[in-house]
């Protein structure tokens, strides 16, 4: 998973209040992270004059967003754009405050589960199912290449040692050949193993959202990990099917977003996708969500 862990830390006590793990940090590592971040936060605020940011930790990075008494932390792999992780932590802060208020909450099981689903939606909405699949599956032992066909967006996400074009072309051929069978398998939760010209392959539908194509080695493949990861992706696929929202927009700026979307719908055939891509482009340049929306609104008005 490109996003390893999502943490909400109580700055005052230096403890983790909430954790949603996609499988990475151990408990002791997590507590150590919380302690260190709580300690260095006043220094970051004083010297950096910033509420949010990120720093590298080996092959991973940690983003933080400081809001009130809490720190919202995303621990993710370097393949993920830090701007996206920052966006996730920012949106997480808004969602947390809306649900629990500004003081440390007393969690009950129901509220915790609800918030966990919100976090899943935010993470999935920002990173995207295809990007999740692409980055998550590539690191399993014995996997040569990964392709994920997003049926909703009609897009391919690929990763591996072979050039992306070659993988896409090859997997498109497999999709034509096995597509119908795979789609009919979607509800059963089964996976298919085939022998192709590029060696053994595993094909697995992810609900009605997409199809995974994994090129694997003949020997030394961690099949158990593959099955676990595919299950994880299927759960995320369910969330996307239910919410129908790939892009999660914080409640506070929803009116501006909707107004801009209406303007975009007058200009472009696929307004939602265009707007999402434009926002991402500006976010990569360091714009906050609010300023990006404002700038895009100016640009869109220029075209009206």
């Amino acid at each position: 998973m490109p996003v390893h862990d999502v943490l909400v830390i109580d700055k005052g006590a230096g403890v983790v209040l909430f954790r949603r793990s996609y499988g990475s940090l151990t408990s002791s590592q997590m507590n150590a992270t919380a302690g260190i971040l709580s300690m260095i936060m006043p220094l970051v605020e004083e010297i950096g004059r910033t509420r949010s940011g990120y720093f590298s930790v080996g092959r991973d990075f940690i983003t933080f967003y400081n809001r009130g008494d809490f720190l919202f932390v995303i621990y993710a792999r370097k393949e993920l754009d830090p701007a996206i992780a920052e966006k996730v932590s920012e949106e997480l802060a808004v969602a947390f405050e809306r649900k629990f208020g500004t003081s440390p909450p007393a969690f009950d099981v129901k509220a915790l589960r609800e918030f966990q689903q919100t976090v899943d939606r935010i993470v999935l909405g920002s990173v995207g199912l295809g990007e999740f699949a692409r980055l998550d599956l590539a690191k399993i032992t014995g996997v040569n290449f990964v392709a994920f066909y997003d049926q909703k967006e009609d897009q391919w996400y690929v990763n591996g040692n072979i050039p992306a074009k070659t993988i896409t072309k090859f997997c498109k051929g497999l999709l034509n050949k096995f597509g119908d069978r795979l789609r009919s398998m979607a509800s059963s939760g089964a996976i298919m193993k085939i022998q192709s010209s590029r060696g053994p392959m595993i094909l697995a539908p992810v609900e009605s959202e997409g199809i995974i194509f994994l090129g694997i080695r003949k020997e030394g493949v961690d099949i158990q990990s593959i099955i676990q990861k595919v299950e994880g992706l299927r759960n995320l696929g369910k969330i996307r099917s239910v919410s129908g929202a790939r892009s999660h927009i914080p409640h506070s700026i929803e009116p501006e977003y909707k107004a801009l979307l209406r303007i975009y719908s007058l200009l472009y055939s696929d307004p939602e996708k265009c707007l999402r891509e434009d926002i991402e482009a500006l976010r990569r340049q360091g714009y906050t969500l609010e300023t990006a929306l404002r700038k895009l609104r100016q640009s869109a008005k220029e075209l009206m």
Binding site: D278, A281, L296, S299, L303
Partner: peptide, 13 residues
């Protein structure tokens, strides 16, 4: 003029 307007939205530059 059209490119100048769109360039910013598409690339952020």
């Amino acid at each position: 003029k059209m490119i100048a307007v769109r360039w910013f939205a598409a690339t952020g530059k």
